[in-house]
Design a protein around this nucleic acid. Structure first.
Length: 566
RNA sequence: GCGCCCAUGGCUCAGCUGGAUAGAGCGCCAGACUACGAAUCUGGAUGUCGCAAGUUCGAAUCUUGCUGGGCGCACCA
């Protein structure tokens, strides 16, 4: 019997069972038990209740109206004519309104352990991406201040998504877009100048649009230390521009360092200024105007985004002649495609959702499919401390930075907490809870399962029982229901990754991990792994080693440490 | 006013894209270490899946309409 299944056990079994059913229906038709009908897509599902078998098919209910027969009668005919010549099934049963339930032989399930242990850290890696080039753009915060907790969530989502897509066969590039051409950056330079003057004795009223955090003061004070006070006498515009560059550079380096300590790295930092080189933006607009996507009302230039379903057209060149942010963004996305990416993924704060239609319109005008740009919205983080909201304001400089969160709760807990909800739903992040080393904090639950397994294997080794290879064990000794549950869960891992990659809903990984860790803890408390029975111990060591591998693989995608001791 | 998202036990959320008796964690109650790690486990109580229609063998899931909440609706980024 061949157990070659590239996309995982479940995928393999579903195909197998679907073809068994298709054959049986054909036989039934030939025998006159069923009328000559068009066979629909055969769905094989995994029942929520294990009493309903390992897999189930609703085929009889789907056929019922077409065949004008009672579903129970149809399913009986199908069951009786099922030809399991390979002997993969323990039994089949008919249940409910007409489900056909399949129980797969335990021997077959146990082969999953062989696969996990053969492939080790590669187990779960898929090739569904077909080496397509994907670019994930995320964080992209303007270097006007340190990253705060809201950025942190987007950072983890982008980072984990990138790891996931890499593991499932895409070629991924992670990019950070630096908005350094607009007037926010100008305000940064101005803010530094105000602090500079203040530090040198002037009395300053800070305008609303200036940044007032302490980091601005530090940068101003560094400039004074290094270069003195001569900027007081110089042309303000030049000084602001220079201070801009200095401050932007310093802050960007700090951001990079914070991200690195958070486990987030980028392949590329892209500066908005690049887009304006060689008149890039205006050349692009010219060419779009020739194609009829852009028109003038005499004073301003408009992009006809309504042609692609936006609610109104959008300005690209203002009355004063300056291009809008949108204009640069069109050029940026054209640039991305020009670099050869097949799929673009943008990760935005959910408050930007109104911006989606115009960007989709733009890429369609550029000749791409709407589906080539996927936009993931990340909802804001509700920061709490012991249940009480923490005030946040960027301008006033009152916010909790990524750095502070890292220092307070650590990388693993912070990352895991951000991954426990769908990214498009609000997230309460409680600093006190994230710090707790208790079961209120699921990251420890999962890490503990991993450490516990390592500990058992260590202890077995000390007693002279080295964790054996699958070939040297008798897996048929694994007969406990908890063992079957664990094996089935390991088998589901590649399929879970596939669904996660397809939907880009990375929270599914944390839910899977919680379940797997729970199944293991439960098993552990009921069954002793290392016993006097050498053969049984060997088989169980192989089982928990496979659990360890899968826990480790999934945690690796999340960028969370899988400790051997805690 | 228009558009997008959301509504599931007391709280925070899942629900594998239409399946069988809707699940976890926290909290509450009652139990389990002379034991491979108790950061764990076992059992119990809690639900008109916001409301109302529709689609079909079958709806938390799809359609429409309400109600209630979040967020957008710049020649800001």
């Amino acid at each position: 019997m061949s157990f070659f299944y590239k996309k995982g056990f479940t995928f393999f079994m579903k195909n197998k069972l679907a073809s068994l059913i298709a054959n049986s229906v054909a036989v039934c038709t030939k025998k006159g038990l069923l009328p000559d009908i068009r066979l629909p897509q055969i769905e094989i599902e995994v029942p929520a209740n294990p009493d309903h078998g390992d897999y189930a098919s609703n085929i009889a209910m789907v056929l019922a109206s077409q065949a004008r027969q009672n579903p129970r009668k149809i399913v009986q005919a199908i069951q009786e004519n099922l030809d399991d010549s390979e002997g993969i099934l323990e039994k089949t049963q008919i249940a409910g309104p007409g489900f056909l339930n399949f129980v797969v032989k335990d021997d077959l399930w146990r082969q999953v352990l062989r696969k996990v242990l053969d492939e080790k850290e590669k187990y779960g890696c898929l090739d569904i991406g077909g080496e397509k080039k994907v670019q994930v753009e995320f964080v992209s915060a303007n270097p006007t201040g340190p990253l705060h907790i809201g950025h942190a969530r987007g950072a983890v989502v982008g980072d984990v998504l990138s790891s996931l897509l890499t593991a499932t066969g895409y070629r991924v590039s992670k990019e950070y877009y630096i908005n350094d051409a607009g007037n926010q950056m100008n305000n940064l330079g101005k803010s530094v100048l105000y602090r500079y003057r203040e530090l040198l004795g002037e009395k300053i009223e800070f305008p609303d649009n200036c940044y007032q955090g302490d980091y601005i003061k530090e940068i101003a004070s560094d400039i004074i230390k290094r270069e003195g006070r001569h900027y007081l006498a110089q042309n303000e515009e030049e000084t602001v521009s220079y201070f801009n560059a200095v401050a932007g550079g310093v802050i960007l380096e700090d951001i990079k360092k914070d991200l690195k300590d958070f486990g987030v790295t980028f392949d590329f930092y892209f500066s908005e200024k690049e887009l304006y080189k060689d008149n890039g933006v205006s050349n692009l607009l010219d060419s779009l105007q020739k194609q009829g996507f852009i028109y003038s009302d005499g004073e301003t230039l408009w992009f006809k985004t309504t042609a692609y379903g936006d609610e109104k057209d959008r300005v690209v060149i203002r009355k004063n002649g300056d291009p809008t942010y949108f204009a640069a963004d069109i050029a940026y996305h054209q640039n991305k495609f020009a670099r050869g990416f097949d799929i673009l993924i943008d990760i935005w704060g959910a408050d930007h959702h109104g911006y989606m239609p115009r960007l989709w319109a733009a890429i369609q005008a550029l000749g791409h499919d709407k589906n080539d740009l996927k936009i993931i919205l990340v909802q804001l983080v509700n920061l709490l401390r012991a249940g009480e909201p923490v005030a946040m304001s960027t301008r006033a400089g009152e916010f909790v930075t990524l750095r502070e969160v890292l220092d307070e709760v650590g990388k693993d807990a912070a990352r895991y907490n951000f991954l426990m909800r769908r990214s498009d739903s609000h997230l309460d992040f409680d600093l006190e809870v994230a710090k707790k080393q208790s079961n209120e904090n699921p990251v420890f639950y999962v890490q503990y399962a991993h450490a516990r397994i390592c500990s058992i294997i260590r202890m077995a080794g000390e007693r002279g029982m080295i964790c054996p290879a699958f070939e040297n064990t008798d897996p048929s000794l694994l007969v406990e229901p908890e063992e079957r549950t664990l094996i089935k869960m390991l088998a589901r891992y590649p399929e879970m990754l596939e669904g996660t990659a397809r939907t880009l809903e990375i929270h599914r990984i944390t839910f899977y991990l919680n379940e797997l860790a729970g199944a293991f803890h439960s098993y552990y408390n009921r069954n002793k792994v290392v016993t006097d029975n050498a053969a049984l111990s060997a088989a169980r060591l192989v089982l928990i080693d496979a659990v360890r591998v899968v826990l480790g693989n999934a945690l690796k995608i999340l960028g969370v440490n899988a400790p051997e001791k805690m």
